[in-house]
């Protein structure tokens, strides 16, 4: 985590800070000895860490122990050494699920960036009504994934769905959104993009607004075309934000679960089986708690490595 992103001057806040300083400075009250403030550090952070130990530390430890056990939740655990792990290494479906998750990211991230950049660029021009548009684009972001899934189940239905209805009314061929193995994951990526892109529009917009006008003026004076200005000024200056967006959508994409859970159950032909959905099925359909724990830890390591690599990438890029 890097240092705080520079806040733009908040004048009102600064005023109150200096007012407070003045009040404290001139009060000249009884200068009692300060009680050891270090102690209060522990007092203040104790509730958090107590909670963290109980609801994060203990479960994590338990999960690590579970990796070496067979456990169906209802009968006692049974130590089985490394068998969960050897099973994992032979579990084609799990690796399929990881590949599916990767495929989702490969479609979702570029799509999201292009669409978000496009609308952010439009909104950055000083047009009337842009706060209205910004609000509308942001709407799907705040709404629960459950609502979006129920909605898209209807919109994406092959024979009876709204989108295909419009396509056939216009004379086109219906698209097998969720029913063809080739289309299903792209459809889910499309839906996820629709839901999240408003968020990234706002991020890019913030980034664009932080680019000083003078940079563009220089480019203009040098006779750069619009396209050149965009590739030579906007993009490089937007790069840190771009990397942030990639990292954020990667983490979000790895947790793909509720969309396939509600829309496809992982089908057709396991094409939308995400890693988390597979882990969920192992744990709660088939009661392989130990195995699910092994899958979970393994997947966590993958996420950890990917995020670490991206982190390094971020730092190289910024400094």
């Amino acid at each position: 985590m890097s240092e705080p992103v520079g806040h733009r001057p908040q004048t009102r806040r600064e005023k109150s800070i200096s007012a407070l300083k003045r009040a404290l400075g001139t009060s000249g009250g009884s200068r009692r000895a300060v009680s050891d403030p270090g102690r209060m550090g522990y007092v203040f952070s104790a509730p958090y860490f107590f909670h963290l130990a109980l609801f994060f530390g203990y479960p994590l430890l338990f999960a690590l122990i579970l990796v070496f056990h067979r456990w169906d939740i209802v009968t006692p655990m049974e130590f089985i050494g490394l068998r969960n792990i050897s099973r994992l290494l032979q579990d084609d479906l799990f690796f399929r699920a990881i590949r599916n998750t990767g495929f989702f990211l490969v479609i979702h991230i570029p799509l999201q960036i292009i669409v978000a950049l496009f609308f952010a660029e439009l909104l950055n021009a000083k047009l009337k009504g842009r706060s209205f548009f910004r609000t509308v684009y942001f709407l799907p972001v705040v709404v629960s994934g459950v609502v979006v899934a129920i909605l898209f189940q209807q919109l994406f239905a092959f024979e009876t769905g709204y989108i295909n209805g419009v396509i056939s009314a216009l004379g086109g061929d219906r698209v097998p959104w969720l029913v063809s193995p080739a289309w299903a994951m792209p459809s889910i990526a499309l839906m996820a993009t629709w839901k999240n892109v408003g968020f990234y529009v706002i991020l890019f917009l913030t980034g664009l607004q932080n680019i000083p006008d003078s940079m563009y003026e220089v480019a203009y004076l040098e006779g750069a075309t619009t396209w050149q200005r965009w590739t030579q000024v906007t993009l490089p200056l937007l790069n840190p934000m771009l990397v942030t967006v990639v990292v954020l959508s990667t983490i979000g994409g790895f947790s793909l679960f509720i969309e396939p859970y509600l829309l496809t159950g992982g089908g057709p032909l396991s094409s939308t089986l995400s890693a988390l959905l597979y882990i969920y099925n192992q744990a709660f359909y088939f009661n392989h708690m130990g195995y699910a724990a092994a899958l979970g830890i393994f997947f966590a390591l993958i996420i950890f490595v990917v995020v670490l690599l991206q982190r390094r990438f971020v730092e190289e890029d910024i400094y």
């Binding site: 189940q153 239905a157 092959f158 024979e159 009876t160 769905g161 969720l178 029913v179 063809s180 057709p268």
Partner: peptide, 15 residues
């Protein structure tokens, strides 16, 4: 047989 998930009851709607 359609490879789809019908919304609503397709038998009632005579699909």
């Amino acid at each position: 047989f359609p490879k789809t998930k019908f919304q609503g009851n397709a038998f009632v709607s005579k699909q």
